[in-house]
């Protein structure tokens, strides 16, 4: 993960599109908060043009 994130950074993919968080099955609230905040963040960033491929076009 660390290497992948570093590589994405190296390729010029915007910061913030990737995230790792450890969440236990017992931490429902943390899971919900993490997912909501991450979804909000990537929505703000808009479509991922730099990593998009044909699959994103339809």
């Amino acid at each position: 993960m660390t290497l992948l994130f570093s590589m994405l950074d190296y390729l010029g993919v915007e910061d913030g599109r990737t995230r790792v968080e450890w969440v236990s099955a017992a931490e429902g609230v943390k899971f919900s908060e993490t997912m909501n905040s991450f979804a909000k963040k990537i929505n703000e960033l808009g479509p991922s043009v730099r990593l998009g491929d044909l699959r994103c076009k339809n």
């Binding site: 660390t2 994130f5 570093s6 950074d9 910061d15 790792v20």
Partner: peptide, 17 residues
């Protein structure tokens, strides 16, 4: 390094997110 684990390994997400 990528196929063995040590407790000193970098945490995922270093420098991002």
């Amino acid at each position: 390094p990528l196929t063995c684990f040590t407790t000193d390994d970098a945490e995922p997400g270093v420098g991002r997110g």
